[in-house]
């Protein structure tokens, strides 16, 4: 089955991203396809490469990066939601005159059209949030 995944909450404060990660991993292990993971609302905060959680805790962003690399996942971050919350890639940082970018590798900034397109192409949209 072809799944589109949407994550609406940031890391740590909510379990949504952890659960979505586990879902994606299980689905991929079973041979299903994840056509896109779309980060929206506070979910865009999962994409920051500047998080430094305590060493005895999981690093959610790094887990996504590793899973993304292993399975060539499309980890899409909504541009409007990201701009609001200070999640910028190199191009966005330059465009807005900011001194730093903070998007982790594998993640990429994209538009809401990509969410709708994923919903159209997928057999199922599975949303993780509150």
């Amino acid at each position: 089955m072809k799944y589109a995944i949407m994550i609406n909450e940031g890391p740590y404060n909510h379990q949504a991203s952890d659960t979505a990660y586990n879902f994606c991993k299980a689905a991929l292990d079973k041979g299903h396809e994840i056509i896109r993971v779309f980060f929206y609302h506070d979910g865009v905060n999962n994409a920051t490469r500047l998080g430094v959680p305590p060493q005895d805790d999981r690093n959610i962003t790094e887990k996504w990066v590793a899973l993304g690399k292993e399975h060539d996942l499309d980890l899409s971050v909504c541009v409007a939601a990201a701009q609001r919350r200070g999640l910028l890639d190199e191009g966005e940082a330059q465009r807005w005159g900011k001194d730093v970018n903070n998007i982790a590798e594998v993640f990429h900034i994209t538009g809401l059209g990509q969410l709708v397109e994923a919903c159209i192409q997928a057999d199922r949209l599975v949303e993780f949030g509150d």
Binding site: N8, Y40, H41, A80, A81, G111, L112, G113, L115, V116, E117, C119, I120
Partner: peptide, 18 residues
């Protein structure tokens, strides 16, 4: 912010003729 950001998705889905 859910309601406000939801509306943004609505407009995109409508623009893509769903």
């Amino acid at each position: 912010i859910y309601a406000q950001e939801s509306l943004e998705v609505v407009l995109i889905a409508a623009a893509l003729e769903q």
